[in-house]
Every structure is written in C-alpha cells, then in structure tokens.
C-alpha cells in the first residue's frame, strides 16, 4: 500500500499522461499514485484514462490552476 508522487508541474500535454501511464505500470495493486499537475487539459485526460483502466480516481484542486490527481491501482 505504498504512496508515490509524480511531479508533472510545468509539463504540457501529452507529457503528464504519458508519464502517468509509465509510472502506473511500475505500481503494485493497492498502491496510490499522486500526480501533481498545473496544466488544465491534463486534469481532463489523465483521470479519463485512469477511469477507463478501471482505477479509482480523485481530483483535488490544491491551488489556483494546480491539481493533485489520486489514482489507486485496483488491479
């Protein structure tokens, strides 16, 4: 049940999504990845991809124009 952070601040599409996909491969079931994002399109496509994979996703707006996306690897 480890927790990892992925710093995607200052990255534009599609880099945050590609980095998230790559990182999720290395996680074990039950682990949580927190993706830090400040690119509004990535707040759309990262959760969209993760939900399609069947993972649990939660988005938190931590500051103006900055988000943390929690992704739990469920399988």
């Amino acid at each position: 049940m480890a927790e990892y952070r992925l710093d995607c601040l200052g990255e534009a599409c599609p880099v945050p999504l590609l980095k998230t996909q790559k990182k999720m491969e290395t996680l074990k079931v039950g682990d949580i990845l927190i993706v830090e994002i400040d690119h509004s399109c990535a707040v759309k496509n990262v959760p969209e991809w993760a939900r399609k994979e069947g993972y649990n996703v939660e988005i938190e707006e931590v500051d103006d124009g900055q988000w943390e996306i929690y992704i739990e690897k469920t399988k």
Binding site: L9, G10, E11, D38, H39, S40, D63, D64, G65, Q66
Partner: peptide, 18 residues
C-alpha cells in the same frame, strides 16, 4: 476565462529542453 475559473498560474520552466 482563466481568471473567472480562478486557474491563473505562472508556470515554472521545468528544463532547458522545454
């Protein structure tokens, strides 16, 4: 639009590659 959504942020440059 960015101000109304209160999403204005000056982003840092991450690397010289960018």
């Amino acid at each position: 639009a960015t101000l109304l959504a209160s999403q204005f942020k000056i982003k840092k440059i991450k690397s010289w590659k960018q």
